[in-house]
């Protein structure tokens, strides 16, 4: 198979000028929680349904990201975002409240990065000035759609992951000194290794992440990163990805400088099995702690690879395997 190994550069160096991260009550247990702007005490944010709560979470976080950047709603030229619920209604409904120009994005749990890549391209055209991007997920709304009712007593295997309640949004604008900027990006191809277990997403997504990392590194030879961080492979998936990197020998230095947001999200709490997942997982970690550390110049150059499993309950029941995707973005700080 011939691989299209294009990596895109962004000479105008669009900067992430502000971010906001909000999470649900359980995410307090995360070691990252000092970097979250807001922790809601109620999973539903006081709303009637989980979906309304989900929508409210997105709306509040978007407003916070705009406010933190010192902007007003009319300053935003475009809102790019998505979530995992049917037809992305929570994001659509939040966009209704925000009343900005809006395009929904869906790359499952990789939406945080796919929206950032898209935003970077739009900014490169110089026709827009500020783009709001990000992703969110809400545990209850996602679980009930993809798996079972919340109160159903089913046993999750050790490969199972826990959908995060959280939203991470940022504002991307023209280059600004002292803010992290997007250097380059690789758009993922859909990879399917015929995994079928919906309770083992990490194994399904690892080859997609590997593929994208491989392609990105091939085009950026000589670049060294402080670390590469995948989205939500979890403990299982990240172990497999490390093995893939090791055996392929692409760039062995990566093995040590590799992190995964999902595996780190809940620390070493066994209750969460293989770790965190969901569109909100990568969005909150990338735009929360990682962004803060970039701002503090702890790191100079990192590669963020968000992964997404492109399945639906219907496709799983019809016996389809789980195709996956991973998008990569290189963030720099000068």
């Amino acid at each position: 198979m011939v691989k299209n190994s294009r990596t895109y550069q962004f000479p105008s160096k669009p900067s992430i000028v502000s971010t906001a991260v909000a999470v649900g009550p359980l995410e307090k247990e995360s070691p990252f929680h000092p970097h979250f702007d807001h922790v809601y005490e109620d999973e539903r944010l006081g709303q009637e349904t989980n979906e309304k709560g989900h929508s409210q979470l997105i709306e509040d976080t978007c407003n916070l990201a705009i406010m933190k950047g010192g902007f007003q709603l009319p300053d935003i030229d475009l809102f790019l975002g998505g979530d995992l619920v049917n037809q992305m209604t929570p994001t659509n409904f939040a966009a209704r409240q925000l009343a900005t120009p809006y395009m929904g994005m869906f790359s499952a749990c990789a939406t945080s990065i796919s929206s950032l890549i898209t935003a970077s391209f739009f900014l490169e055209t110089k026709q827009m000035d500020r783009i709001l991007f990000g992703a969110a997920s809400q545990h209850n709304a996602v679980e009930r759609q993809f798996r079972y009712p919340i109160e159903y007593g089913t046993q999750k295997p050790p490969t199972g992951q826990w959908t995060v309640t959280g939203a991470g949004y940022g504002v991307l604008s023209h280059n600004q000194v002292g803010k992290p900027f997007v250097q380059s990006a690789t758009i993922g191809q859909v990879v399917d290794c015929e995994c079928t277990d919906p309770l083992d997403m990490g194994s399904a997504m690892a080859p997609a992440a590997f593929d994208t990392i491989q392609r990105h590194l091939a085009q950026n030879k000589g670049t060294s990163y402080d670390f590469v961080m995948t989205g939500d492979l979890g403990k299982t998936g990240s172990a497999i990805l490390q093995e893939l990197i090791k055996t392929s020998g692409v760039s062995s230095y990566l093995v040590d400088q590799y992190r995964d947001a999902g595996a780190e999200f809940y620390g070493n709490n066994d209750k969460f099995l293989s770790g965190a997942s969901g569109a909100g997982c990568s969005a909150t970690v990338y735009l929360g702690p990682i962004y803060a550390e970039l701002l503090a110049k702890q790191y100079k150059k990192i590669l963020l690879v968000a992964t997404g499993a492109l399945l639906s309950p219907l496709s799983f029941q019809q016996g389809e395997s789980i195709p996956c995707i991973a998008h990569a973005v290189e963030l720099s700080m000068e």
Binding site: R144, P149, I150, E151, Y152, G153, T154, Q155, K156
Partner: peptide
């Protein structure tokens, strides 16, 4: 019940209480 379910697996799914749990959790959820 969902905590019992994570611990007991089939032990809590196979008895009629598991059948009840399946019906009742769906009713509450929807």
């Amino acid at each position: 019940y969902k905590k019992i379910g994570q611990f007991g697996g089939a032990g809590s799914a196979v008895p009629v209480t598991g059948f009840g749990n399946a019906v009742i959790s769906a009713a509450i959820e929807h």
